[in-house]
């Protein structure tokens, strides 16, 4: 008889010494769930609300001095940003509703991993949006200098500004990635490992 079979012979007789009473179970029934999917959904809704509050507090200002291209780009980015947030919150909500605890472990993890993929897409979306906004901002600045200052100064300014912008962008990118890693990836990385384990079994 191997080790596990020895344990199996006594397994059904094992009883937890601290049993919960009906009152305790009833109280638990109305407690708050700590499900990962629920948290991903809640955090994304909070982000959306924070975004909306920010845009109300600091409304988008398109100055007269901005070029038409930059003004259009600013509005475009603002619209894309909100469409994106709404799309992702909807996606997280649909995933939250579709996760079924009664499905098999593989399918259950798969449905949660789907949320992880959506989270990754959400992170990429925000980073790309931020990158494109930075590019538009930089291009507008440089273009203005070329229009107002001598060409050689414009070249110098363009190089200097690109370097500064590159490092600032890199720094902010790191902060953003760190934030998302803390908030989302920590929540779902364990599930990814479990999914990989099931794939390995198959």
């Amino acid at each position: 008889m191997d080790e596990l079979d020895k344990l199996k012979t006594t397994w059904s007789g094992i009883s937890e010494p601290k049993q919960f009473s009906k009152q305790e179970i009833n109280k638990m029934l109305h407690g708050k769930s700590r499900s990962i999917i629920k948290w991903v959904f809640i955090i994304s809704v909070i982000e959306l609300l924070v975004g909306v509050c920010f845009s109300i507090a600091i409304p988008l200002k398109v100055e007269d001095e901005y070029s038409v291209m930059y003004s259009v780009a600013l509005w475009g980015m603002e619209i894309i940003s909100y469409c994106g947030i709404v799309y992702f919150v909807y996606g997280f909500f649909v995933n939250y509703r579709h996760v079924k605890n009664t499905s098999n472990v593989n399918d259950h993890i798969e449905s949660i991993v789907k949320t992880r993929r959506l989270v990754e897409l959400y992170i990429k979306f925000n980073i790309y949006l931020f990158g494109i906004s930075t590019l538009f901002f930089g291009f507008e600045k440089v273009l203005k200098v070329f229009q107002e200052k001598p060409f050689s100064y414009g070249i110098f300014y363009a190089i200097f500004f690109s370097i500064v912008l590159f490092f600032v962008f890199k720094l902010i990118l790191r902060v953003m990635k760190f934030y998302y890693r803390i908030i989302y990836q920590r929540l779902v990385s364990k599930l990814q490992r479990n999914k990989e384990e099931l794939i390995e079994i198959e």
Binding site: R34, S35, I36, W39, N101, T102, S103, N104, V105, H108, I109, I112, L187, K190, L191, N194
Partner: peptide, 16 residues
């Protein structure tokens, strides 16, 4: 039989 499936899924997917 029904409960252990739900319980296992919860154990595996709960953030600890």
């Amino acid at each position: 039989t029904w409960a252990y499936r739900v319980a296992l899924n919860t154990a595996i997917s709960l953030f600890r």
